[in-house]
Design a protein around this nucleic acid. Structure first.
Lengths: 191, 191
DNA sequence: TGAGCAGACTAACAAGTGTTAGTTTTTACA
DNA sequence: TGTAAAAACTAACACTTGTTAGTCTGCTCA
């Protein structure tokens, strides 16, 4: 695989702009200005605005799907698996903060790959629910509606991209630990 | 105050479209089609696209600010206040689901009223933090970083608009109770 | 009945959109 | 140093954008 540094820079810059104003409000001329070039020159590196969005979103969505599958198939108890899911979100969001904004806010603007994205998201949530249900079966987790548990956790984890950039002195593993404490102790059945 | 039903319909319809695609991706012609009229006719009722966004966002933001002030100044303990904040979000989101999407996703597209909006949001969060800090002082709440607690709670509450429409059989007070259980028991210091 | 008016319409505008064609400049290296 | 590829440029396209001007329709009520 050859190195495509210029294309990568464009995509990274686009993600930053998409985070600030959303995909639809960012023009190719905005992106070109941020790159220090003219809009037409972008097309020496990318095929379309749509392609940029696709690359940003699909690659991260696949990272999540693969990550949760590994966690699900590991030999840990359910609460440990949930802690690992939290750590997965913290890690990906730390490495790809701007891209996470597009994943959350601009997925509906995918044109050719919307079905693919929705399939990945549904798989992810189905596996998440399975982990919770197994935790309820094994009496690790309070018998609350598993959808509400997932919704609560995912809402927080999906909003991390808004919050992580504000904490310049961020310690990644410490954040994951704190979030686990808050999110999991709440659903951990005290015996 | 005279009844402006047509204008209200336009704003309500706009909020629905904004929720699906975001402010920038919705055109005045989209809105007109959804209203069963031509784009130019919209201007018999509203002054600009921007005005629609302003009305949607500012009115709800003020509702939140007023609501949390009443809660903060009431004579309850801190955990009860947090439960009331949760109920406030559930109530407003149930009544104004589509408008909540604009509040969350499109505030950055406010042109003249961005400062006003940010002031309202900062006030809201400052009061929220005060409630948490008082709860920590009175030993009701675990001495965790109050920002992380607020972030966790607000992430979930601000995402409710995504989730409430999927639960057609929704019982509002039951949802508020479940969320309080999950969100608060996690930070409630067990003695 | 007929005057007034709210609210729809058609037509058009200036500016902005993503993208292409064709050309020039810069870079890498034989 | 000469050459070819990579990557920038100018100019323009067809279309879409929010919005305005001016007109027509149909309802209300004196």
């Amino acid at each position: 695989m050859m190195q495509q540094t210029r294309k990568d820079e464009i995509i990274k810059t686009a993600a930053k702009l998409f985070k600030e104003k959303g995909y639809s409000a960012v023009t190719m001329r905005d992106l070109a200005t941020a790159m220090g070039m003219k809009a037409a020159s972008l097309y020496n590196h990318i095929n379309s605005k749509q392609e940029i969005l696709k690359i940003i979103i699909i690659s991260i969505a696949e990272e999540f799907t693969k990550g949760i599958d590994v966690i699900y198939n590991s030999y840990n108890n359910s609460l440990d698996k949930l802690s690992q899911v939290i750590a997965l979100h913290v890690k990906i969001t730390t490495n790809s903060t701007n891209e996470m904004a597009s994943l959350n806010n601009d997925w509906m603007h995918l044109e050719g790959q919307l079905d693919h994205y929705l399939r990945l998201r549904n798989n992810y949530e189905a596996t998440f629910i399975k982990i919770i249900n197994e935790g309820i079966s094994s009496s690790e987790i309070k018998p609350v509606n598993p959808e509400i548990i997932m919704f609560t956790m995912l809402s927080t984890l999906r909003s991390l991209f808004l919050w992580i950039p504000k904490k310049e002195d961020l310690n990644v593993s410490e954040l994951a630990t704190n979030l686990s404490e808050i999110l999991i102790q709440g659903i951990n059945k005290k015996l």
